[in-house]
């Protein structure tokens, strides 16, 4: 089934379980469990949650650094789950690229910037060196670096510039989707804004879709069209950014929002924090929770009775 205008990325029921031990000691860690969402053209989807909630695993599973346990990954309407053949993998890497958190660790110190950025083209072997070089220069220009930078090595750059190199490397194949895994959290405050602005410009100019993974809620809110909140491998709430901040429904989302310190001394000292205790909050012994739509575009992981409660809360 091919839709006329399929979303750039559609994930449904994605699960990534890690197992360890054997026999009786075998344990399963549900790092990502039944996560579904979709990203449209030129849309930014923010994924937030605490460390260990599975947001990074989610991103890495989509680009197939892991083989998902279950679920479907559709890129531009094409099913890319299960075992990939060479052609499918090529399609995936052509369309999806990744930016990593740590701009120092993720760049090979023994390669020049030209080699790092151009590697994505070189491995395909379809272009000669002059062409690759031309594309590298073009891409460097897009991210605010110059031709002179191409012959240098990563250690000669500052943190913000290194992250620009990382972005250039992701852009060289002209992907439709970029998975940005905490792209600014390792950077200084004054540099963060530069990188966020750059990503925003690229999104506008190139029509990029971005899966933005971060733990800083104010950055995610600023940057994303839609936001998904993850908690222990599950997507507990999904809504448009504005809606999520105005009407957080799931108790975990509320707790998360209340914990973010806001730069306003007039109110910050008096703000009350909401605690989230999943065991006290939910009773899933009789009813099974599932993803339910409360209002158009606003989904919450809840049981039917909770859904009624949330809906009545929403109407107020």
């Amino acid at each position: 089934m091919v839709q006329p205008n399929p979303p750039v990325l559609e994930v449904s029921g994605l699960s990534m379980h890690f197992t360890s031990g054997r026999g009786k000691k075998k344990t399963t860690l549900k790092a990502v469990d039944q996560v579904s969402f979709s990203i449209g053209h030129a849309e930014t989807f923010g994924l937030v949650g605490e460390s260990g909630c599975g947001k990074t695993t989610c991103g890495r599973t989509i680009i197939r650094l892991y083989n998902p346990t279950a679920g479907k990954i559709m890129v531009k309407g094409r099913d890319l789950s299960g075992k990939l053949n060479k052609e499918e993998r090529r399609f995936l890497t052509d369309n999806v690229a990744m930016i990593f958190q740590d701009p120092i660790e993720s760049l090979n110190p023994r390669m020049t910037i030209e080699e790092i950025v151009g590697e994505g083209l070189t491995v395909k072997g379809k272009m000669n060196r002059a062409e690759v070089r031309r594309r590298v220069y073009e891409t460097l220009d897009k991210v605010g670096l110059t031709q002179e930078h191409a012959t240098r090595y990563p250690h000669e750059f500052s943190g913000g510039q290194r992250q620009r190199v990382g972005i250039a490397r992701a852009l060289i194949n002209q992907p439709s989707l970029i998975i940005a895994d905490e792209p600014v959290s390792a950077l200084d405050v004054s540099i963060q804004a530069q990188v966020i602005n750059l990503l925003n410009d690229l999104k506008r100019d190139l029509g990029l879709s971005i899966l933005f993974i971060a733990h800083d809620l104010s950055v995610v809110k600023y940057f994303s069209d839609k936001i998904g909140v993850m908690y222990f491998g599950k997507m507990v709430e999904l809504a448009e950014g504005e809606e999520l901040y105005k009407n957080p429904m799931h108790p975990y989302t509320r707790s998360l929002l209340s914990a973010v310190p806001r730069p306003n001394p007039l109110t910050e000292r008096f703000r009350v924090r909401v605690n989230y205790d999943p065991e006290a909050e939910h009773d899933y012994t009789s009813e099974q929770p599932r993803m339910a739509q409360l209002s158009p575009g606003h989904f919450v992981w809840c049981s039917p009775s909770e859904q009624q409660r949330y809906e009545s809360m929403m109407r107020q």
Partner: peptide
């Protein structure tokens, strides 16, 4: 240079 919960305008990055 930091976005707050309300900001939508372009961030004023420090060059």
């Amino acid at each position: 240079s930091i976005p707050d919960m309300e900001s939508k305008e372009r961030l004023l990055a420090i060059p």
